[in-house]
């Protein structure tokens, strides 16, 4: 093919890509606005403040002290904050985080899964003063500044309304299907693709020895099988070569004493093991026995 033709194809591809990007971005902003406009102004006697506040991935630090990095680690697009107040009662704060994709909405939801399951949105959880759930590409947090029975009722009602305004549901990341079911503590599942989040839930090292990045998926989970406990990490890389590099680095930095099966005894008597299978790197971070560690590695495909 002639060079001029190649340049023409390249040029039109770039233009098409740019237009597509702009349209996606515009559609995203539009649906966020549509959602905003559909939210109730009043809920069980509480009234919304005159204006919502909108934050992006940079200005979110002005709104959330400390934990803003968590939302950035899951690619926060924008956050809508609405405050509901009532004359004699605590304020209720609704935060809708547009994470851009269901996988990131689910991921940021798994950062804190304490509390009791409630039937609100996807995987709703309630603990004193705070309701959280995810739906499609949104993560929703509703908290009351002081817990009262009336406020709790209003929070739950508001949650149901917000969930109903988000028409689509989201699929959980496919990587979760790799987790063995036997003994899985579902509330312990953390889905992530940023090393700061991995280190928060399970500190591995001061450097990113697993090469966790926005291009990798990772899932961390705890297991209880009878008296035996285990922690499992599965990382999916964009290609086999990257997985091989990560595996090599992990062995070098974390399991230099691994045996030929990839298993090593940790300093606290537990066992760790790793095995790379194509794009996957399966790591048993800790298991009570060598056999349990080995079993996890061989049971995941």
């Amino acid at each position: 093919m002639k060079t001029a033709t190649l340049w023409r194809i390249y040029f039109y591809s770039m233009i098409a890509g740019f237009i597509s990007l702009m349209m996606t971005s515009s559609a995203t902003a539009d649906s966020f606005r549509v959602l905003q406009e559909s939210l109730p102004k009043k809920i069980n006697g509480w009234t919304a403040s005159a204006e919502d506040r909108i934050y992006n991935e940079r200005s979110i630090f002005d709104y959330i002290n400390g934990a803003a990095e968590v939302y950035r680690a899951y690619n926060l697009k924008q956050c809508l904050a609405r405050r509901y107040s009532i004359e004699k009662g605590p304020a209720i704060v609704l935060d809708i985080f547009d994470m851009g994709s269901p996988r990131d909405a689910f991921g940021v939801f798994t950062h804190d899964t304490d509390g009791n399951a409630v039937s609100v949105g996807q995987d709703g959880r309630y603990r004193p003063g705070w309701l959280s759930f995810w739906k499609h590409r949104y993560f929703i947090s509703i908290y009351m500044e002081e817990e009262t029975a009336e406020a709790e009722k209003a929070v739950m009602e508001l949650g149901r309304i917000v969930a109903s305004k988000i028409r689509e549901s989201g699929n959980k990341p496919e990587l979760l299907l790799k987790l063995p079911k036997d003994g899985l503590q579902t509330q312990s599942i953390r889905y992530l693709h940023h090393p700061i989040i991995l280190n928060y839930h399970y500190y591995i090292s001061d450097e990113n020895i697993l090469n966790i990045s926005p291009h990798t998926d990772a899932v961390l989970a705890s297991y209880q099988r009878g008296d035996h406990e285990a922690r499992l990490l599965i990382v999916k890389y964009p290609d086999t070569k990257t997985a091989e590099d990560a595996s090599r680095n992990f062995y070098k930095s974390y399991l230099p004493d691994a045996d030929t099966n990839g298993t090593a005894r940790l300093e606290d008597g537990k066992w760790a093991a790793a095995l790379q299978k194509g794009e996957l790197l399966i790591i048993v971070l800790e298991a009570d026995t060598r056999e349990a560690a080995h079993h996890f590695l061989t049971s995941i495909h």
Binding site: G66, A67, P90, R127, G129, W130, Y143, M144, E146, E147
Partner: peptide, 11 residues
């Protein structure tokens, strides 16, 4: 602490 704002009067 709970939630994005890490605060509830309950605690």
């Amino acid at each position: 602490g709970v939630g994005p704002h890490h605060f509830s009067q309950a605690y």
